[in-house]
């Protein structure tokens, strides 16, 4: 990204003060009103929260089973030595990795495309 510090960042005391910089210049209003921006934020926020919810559900479900139903986790897989709990632990680890992968895939394609479209529409 070629944009460097723009001076619109609202941050006090940059090393070199930029005259005329304000906390909310017109550029921000323009972006905030853009339908593309709204769509991007809406899609990404809801996707992010859904994935967060899934991760919480899976992890605290696992912890809940450890706390409340140890015998279920001790059940053997088939006739072997490995237990259901062991499999679940590994699945939680893989699930966390897959979720991050899913998010990154969607972000790399859909969200980056929307962001690029937004920047084009703003003439940047």
């Amino acid at each position: 990204m070629s944009i460097t510090t723009s001076g619109l960042d609202g941050r006090p005391a940059p090393a070199v003060p930029r005259p005329g910089s304000t906390a909310s210049g017109p550029a921000y209003d323009e972006v905030a009103k853009s339908p593309i921006f709204r769509q991007l934020v809406q899609e990404r926020t809801s996707f992010g929260w859904i994935l967060t919810g899934l991760m919480l559900l899976v992890y605290f479900g696992f912890i809940g089973l450890i706390a409340f139903d140890k015998s279920l986790l001790a059940v053997k897989l088939g006739s072997g030595t490995a237990s259901v709990g062991l499999l679940m632990g590994v699945v939680v680890i893989l699930f966390a990795f897959l979720l991050t992968g899913l998010y990154v895939m969607r972000a790399n394609t859909r969200y980056d495309a929307l962001a690029a479209e937004l920047k084009r529409s703003l003439g940047r």
């Binding site: 070629s2 460097t4 906390a23 972006v31 962001a115």
Partner: peptide, 20 residues
């Protein structure tokens, strides 16, 4: 609270962010 809008735009899009 009013300044949230500008922060929000930048946090979601990177517009105005410190570049490389």
């Amino acid at each position: 609270r009013a300044a949230f809008e500008a922060q929000f735009v930048r946090s979601e899009t990177g517009i105005g962010a410190e570049g490389a």
